[in-house]
Nucleic acid binder design. Sequence first.
DNA 1: ATAAACTTTCAATAAATATTGAAAGTTCGA
DNA 2: TCGAACTTTCAATATTTATTGAAAGTTTAT
Lengths: 168, 168
Amino acid sequence: MQLNDAKMEFVQTWGSIGSAWGIPRSMAQIHALLLASNEALSTEDVMETIKLSRGNVNINMRELINWRLVSKQNKIGERKEFFTAQTDIMSMAQNIVEERKRRELQPVLSLLSKLKNEELEGNEEEVAHFKQLMQELDDFIKQLDQLSEIWLKLKDNFFFKKMIKTMS
Amino acid sequence: MQLNDAKMEFVQTWGSIGSAWGIPRSMAQIHALLLASNEALSTEDVMETIKLSRGNVNINMRELINWRLVSKQNKIGERKEFFTAQTDIMSMAQNIVEERKRRELQPVLSLLSKLKNEELEGNEEEVAHFKQLMQELDDFIKQLDQLSEIWLKLKDNFFFKKMIKTMS
DNA sequence: ATAAACTTTCAATAAATATTGAAAGTTCGA
DNA sequence: TCGAACTTTCAATATTTATTGAAAGTTTAT
């Protein structure tokens, strides 16, 4: 099999996965292409390889930079900008987690804290049930946070890793 | 504040969150409404409360049942079907994780195992880089799996929980 | 100051996805 | 067996979201 075919297949798959998780398909595809590439690529390289328009590549590249998944590079003697993906997969995943926490956990948190402090009028049992739901969601989110810290430790602390293994 | 207003706000927020994570808005809304409700609701209850068509509610309800987030209930003396959401948030989250693992991890895994065994033709360095990426992704997915097991333990093993806390 | 090389923007358009609702299907009691 | 009560289906439609590409903007070298 040709390396390039393999790359393209990877790009496509990564694209659908991203799409299923609410990440724009082109953004995921561009990311995949950069991940799979040995060296930095220019906007035009990307345009040609995955057949996307200039604007599309530009906008999604910027978004990838926002997510800290990609960074700009300059090649000496070249005016164009080149881009590379963060190579370490674990840090990459960490960045994705952080970004989504920031974007989507925040609205839930503010809703929860707002509703937890509200005096709710209505049938007593129903109110109790609703309040309990809010409490459980709050606990849940705290646990998620805890889990993401454990993950960090798992990532770079060998001792911790072994300890976990022992307990499994 | 009226309980019902609080419920509706929760329904809306849950809907957008779902949407951001690739879960159809109506599906997430229906789920939220059931979560927030003291008792089982009928298709028509849902239709009226969140203003959705019969077909929409029917299809998304079925999907929620597939995901094991909702179950059918029969009330004696009533012909209609009623629905309730799984009440325990942790188990709910577990089900969502399982479902998504099943749906979206599978394609990556098969791609990886396919590409790992391929003999790739192309520039030696580039091939090496690509192969390394595949390996790293594979490791990463294994670690994700490990993490989801840790979570299970975290969920119902008090001793484990304390241990983790000590180590933090 | 000019022009070439490159990047960014955004209104228009396309594509993907969700939703509707009427009609067909099912179930159940009499 | 019939019909009322309810559920399911799916082609048509609406909505949302992604993408395009031409034009405007920026940077740099001379």
